[in-house]
C-alpha cells in the first residue's frame, strides 16, 4: 500500500479505540507457529489457558471437516494427529469467527451471509490448493479466505453512512465493491483488511494476499495465495454464496488468477475438471458451515 493509502485508512479507522484486537491466545499462537523452535508441547501449554478453545479444536478434529475415520478423544492426540500448522489454523479460524461474529450481528447487513461467504471461500480456497498440489498453501488459504473481506465489516462498523452509499452503488449502479469503496473512502476493503491483519501481526504473506485478493496479478510476494482466494471467491459466487458483489457469470479460464494458479502448479498438463470441482463444492460448503457452528458453540 502507498503511504497515502495508509494515511487514508488511519484517518478513517486508526483513531478508533474499539478496533477489534485478536485474542492474546491467537496472537501468541501465531508467534509460536512462526518460531521454528516451538513444539506441540508449547501449544498444549498455551491451550490449557483456554478450555473452550481446546474443546472446539477437539470437535473440529472429529467433524466432517477432517473426516478422520477414528474418534479423536483428547487434546494431546488431536495435536499429534493434526500437527502444529493445522492447530494454528483452527485456532486462528475459531478466534476470527468468535471475534467478529456476534459484533457483526448488530450491523446493518446480512451477517450470516457474510460468514457463509467467508467460510465458504476459506474452505474452497483450501480445496483448490489441495487440488493443485499447493500443499504448503492449504492452511494459509483457509485463514486468508476467512478474513479476506473483513475490511467490509470495518467499513460497515465505522463508516455507517458511507457504507449505505457503497451498497447502493453496487446494487443500483453496477459498481464493483472495490470501485464503490474507493470512490467514497479512497481505499477499498481489501486494503483495509490487510491493514487490520498487519495490526494483528499476521505474517506478510497473508496480509499481502488479503490486499490483492481482487487483483492477484499485482501482488509481488503472494501471487499464488492471492490467486487462490480470488478464484475461490468466484467459485463462491458460482455457488450463489456471494456477498455484496455483483456476479454476471464468468469464464474462469480467462481469469488472470486462474492462469497464475495453473502456471505455478507442479501438475503439468493437468486438465482441471472445473465441472466436477464445482459439483463437489456443496460438500465443502457444508464443512464451512460446520466450522462456523463449532466456532460459535452452536453446533448442538
Amino acid at each position: 500500500m502507498t503511504e497515502n493509502e495508509i494515511q487514508k485508512i488511519e484517518n478513517s479507522f486508526g483513531q478508533i479505540e474499539t478496533l477489534p484486537t485478536l485474542p492474546t491466545l491467537a496472537a501468541d499462537l501465531i508467534m509460536l507457529a512462526e518460531n521454528p523452535q516451538s513444539s506441540l508441547g508449547d501449544i498444549a501449554l498455551l491451550l490449557q489457558r483456554d478450555p473452550a478453545m481446546a474443546s472446539k479444536i477437539l470437535k473440529i478434529a472429529n467433524s466432517a471437516f477432517y473426516g478422520y475415520s477414528k474418534q479423536v478423544n483428547n487434546l494431546p492426540s488431536a495435536l499429534l494427529i493434526l500437527g502444529l500448522r493445522e492447530v494454528k489454523n483452527i485456532v486462528l479460524g475459531v478466534s476470527i469467527i468468535n471475534l467478529f461474529y456476534s459484533s457483526s450481528a448488530k450491523l446493518s447487513f446480512d451477517h450470516k451471509k457474510f460468514w457463509m461467504h467467508s467460510a465458504g471461500c476459506a474452505q474452497i480456497a483450501r480445496a483448490l490448493a489441495f487440488k493443485m498440489g499447493f500443499f504448503e498453501q492449504e492452511l494459509e488459504a483457509f485463514t486468508v479466505g476467512l478474513i479476506h473481506d473483513i475490511g467490509k465489516i470495518a467499513i460497515s462498523q465505522f463508516q455507517k453512512d458511507k457504507f449505505k452509499t457503497i451498497i447502493q452503488l453496487i446494487q443500483n449502479d453496477n459498481y464493483t465493491s472495490c470501485d464503490a469503496e474507493t470512490s467514497l473512502l479512497g481505499v477499498n476493503h481489501a486494503q483495509i483488511g490487510s491493514w487490520l491483519a498487519e495490526k494483528w501481526l499476521f505474517p506478510r504473506s497473508l496480509t499481502e494476499a488479503i490486499e490483492y485478493h481482487h487483483q492477484p496479478y499485482e501482488s509481488v510476494n503472494s501471487q499464488k495465495l492471492a490467486s487462490l482466494i480470488h478464484i475461490a471467491d468466484i467459485f463462491c459466487k458460482a455457488k450463489d454464496l456471494s456477498f455484496l458483489e455483483k456476479f454476471d457469470g464468468e469464464d474462469i479460464t480467462d481469469n488472470q488468477g486462474w492462469k497464475i494458479i495453473q502456471e505455478t502448479s507442479l501438475r503439468k498438463n493437468f486438465h482441471f475438471d472445473i465441472e466436477r470441482f464445482t459439483f463437489g463444492l456443496d460438500e465443502e460448503i457444508i464443512k464451512a458451515q460446520q466450522f462456523i457452528n463449532i466456532s460459535r458453540g452452536t453446533d448442538i
Binding site: A238, K239, D240, E250, I252, T253, I274, E275
Partner: peptide
Amino acid sequence: SESLFGLSRSFKLILFPGALV
C-alpha cells in the same frame, strides 16, 4: 449434474450463480 468434461473442448464454460452453462 451433467458435464461436457472429456466430451468436448469446443465450448467455453461459464459459471453463473448456481449454474454452469
